[in-house]
Amino acid sequence: NRHQFAPGTFSGVLQCLVCDKTLLGKESLQCSNCNANVHKGCKDAAPACT
Results as ranks from 00 to 15, higher is better:
Asn35Asp: 12
Cys49Ile: 04
Arg2Asp: 05
Asp44Glu: 14
Cys34Gly: 01
Arg2Thr: 12
Phe10Ala: 12
Ser28Val: 08
Ser32Trp: 04
Pro47Tyr: 08
Val38Met: 07
Phe5Ser: 03
Cys16Phe: 00
Leu17Asn: 08
Gly12Lys: 05
Cys49Arg: 04
Arg2Leu: 08
Leu14Thr: 11
Gly8Glu: 06
Asp44Arg: 09
Gly25Asp: 14
Gly12Gln: 03
Phe10Asp: 15
Ala46Thr: 12
Leu23Met: 08
Leu24Tyr: 13
Thr22Phe: 04
Cys34Asn: 00
Arg2Phe: 14
Leu14Pro: 04
Lys21Ala: 05
Ala6Arg: 15
Glu27Lys: 00
Leu24Cys: 13
Leu17Met: 11
Cys16Tyr: 00
Val13Phe: 05
Gly12Ala: 05
Lys21Phe: 05
His3Thr: 04
Cys31Val: 01
Leu24Lys: 07
Asn37Ala: 07
Cys34Val: 01
Ala45Thr: 14
Cys34Glu: 01
Asn37Gln: 12
Ala46Asn: 07
Ala46Pro: 04
His3Arg: 01
Leu14Ile: 14
Phe10Val: 12
Cys16Trp: 00
Ala45Asn: 12
Gly41Leu: 12
Leu17Arg: 11
Cys49Phe: 02
Ala6Asn: 15
Gln4Ile: 15
Ser11Tyr: 03
Gly41Thr: 11
Lys26Thr: 15
Lys26Ala: 14
Thr9Leu: 05
Arg2Ser: 09
Cys49Asn: 04
Arg2Trp: 03
Gln15Cys: 06
Pro47Asn: 11
Ala6Glu: 15
Lys21Tyr: 06
Val18Gln: 06
Gln4Phe: 14
Cys42Phe: 00
Pro47Gln: 07
Ser28Leu: 10
Asn1Phe: 12
Leu23Lys: 05
Cys34Ile: 02
Phe5Trp: 02
Phe5Tyr: 05
Gly25Tyr: 05
Val38Trp: 03
Gly12Val: 04
Leu23Thr: 04
Val18Thr: 04
Gly12Leu: 04
Leu14Arg: 08
Gly12Met: 07
Asp44Ile: 04
Thr50Asp: 13
Asn1Ala: 05
Pro7Asp: 04
Thr50Ser: 11
Cys34Arg: 00
Ser28Gln: 08
Leu24Glu: 14
Cys49Leu: 03
Lys21Arg: 05
Asn1Met: 14
Cys31Glu: 02
Leu24Gln: 11
Ala36Trp: 07
Ala46Gln: 09
Asn35Gly: 10
Ala45Arg: 10
Cys31Phe: 01
Ala48Asn: 12
Pro7Leu: 06
Phe10Trp: 12
Ala6Met: 14
Lys43Asp: 14
Asn37Phe: 08
Ser32Cys: 11
Asp20Asn: 06
Asn1Asp: 11
Asn35Lys: 15
Val18Cys: 08
Gly8His: 09
Ala36Lys: 15
Thr22Glu: 13
Gly25Pro: 13
Lys26Phe: 07
Thr9Asp: 11
Leu23His: 08
Lys40Asn: 13
Val13His: 10
Leu29Cys: 00
Leu17Gln: 10
Phe5Lys: 02
Asp20Gln: 07
Leu23Gln: 05
Ser32Gln: 10
Leu23Asn: 06
Lys26Asn: 15
Leu23Trp: 03
